[in-house]
């Protein structure tokens, strides 16, 4: 059984937010109106979180792309009273919209703040619904949603591979964020596959995981920004 995971190299990430827009476009995440956005109700399945440290001129700004961490021990599923969120055998934390009652226990339980609540029914400005992806459902008002690692792409990739009588190749299934990344800072694949690129990257000495001490065992690994060491 595969165990899907992601590596994000912060040294390569340029903070461009292509992943943010690609994710919204792929997953039919509606745009909040300016007013809604002002109330902090922008929906995003992946976001860039800034950390600004130090004082001028010694300021450092770090930009952290933050999707659902797809924890192996997800705190969110433990609090769901209706079993509307759970983890698949291949490690993807799913949300079943039809079951979700909108209690938002999971949004509070998630230490990574990656779950968002639909305060209103999804709206598409006239005409823009043409660009909706038929592979992803529209979430109704009152349910929680989050990154799925673009699991619909996994279903499709598996089918294509199976119909050609071959196993799924490394890199054949990647989420929209990884696919668009112009600096190729994101890696995605099977952490159980010793030959996969993502496995190799997750063994880097620069690797760390967010809030590891909480024991959620996230499957998104970050590579710390290294320092330049010149020969001069």
């Amino acid at each position: 059984m595969a165990r899907w995971g992601m590596v994000i190299d912060l040294a390569k990430c340029s903070g461009c937010q292509a992943c943010v827009v690609a994710c919204a476009a792929e997953n039919n995440v509606p745009c909040a109106s300016p007013e809604e956005a002002g109330r902090g109700r922008t929906l995003a399945w992946i976001k860039i979180v800034p950390f600004i440290e130090g004082e001028f001129p010694h300021v450092k700004m770090r930009l952290l792309p933050l999707p659902c961490q797809h924890c192996d021990n997800p705190p969110c599923i433990k609090v769901c009273p209706v079993d509307a969120t759970n983890i698949t055998p291949d490690g993807i934390v799913r949300q079943i919209f039809g079951r979700c009652i909108g209690c938002r226990y999971c949004t509070n339980a998630c230490p990574y703040t990656v779950r968002v609540f639909n305060w209103k029914a999804p709206e598409w400005p006239e005409g823009m619904e043409e660009a909706q992806n038929p592979d992803v459902s529209l979430r109704p008002k009152g349910v929680v949603e989050k990154c799925t690692f673009c699991v619909h792409r996994l279903q499709k990739a598996k089918e294509v591979a199976a119909s050609q009588n071959r196993p799924l190749a490394d890199g054949e299934y990647i989420p929209a964020c990884v696919e668009t990344c112009p600096t190729q800072a994101m890696y995605f694949g099977d952490l159980e596959d010793p030959k996969s690129k993502v496995k190799e990257m997750s063994r880097s000495p620069r690797v760390f995981r967010l809030l590891e001490e909480l024991g959620a065992q996230p499957k998104v690994f970050y590579l710390a920004e290294g320092e330049w060491s010149g020969k001069s």
């Binding site: 459902s137 279903q155 199976a162 119909s163």
Partner: peptide
């Protein structure tokens, strides 16, 4: 219904 993902390929081909 729109929240159902159905694939012909999976049912007919596979």
């Amino acid at each position: 219904p729109q929240d159902v993902y159905f694939s012909h390929r999976r049912h007919a081909r596979l």
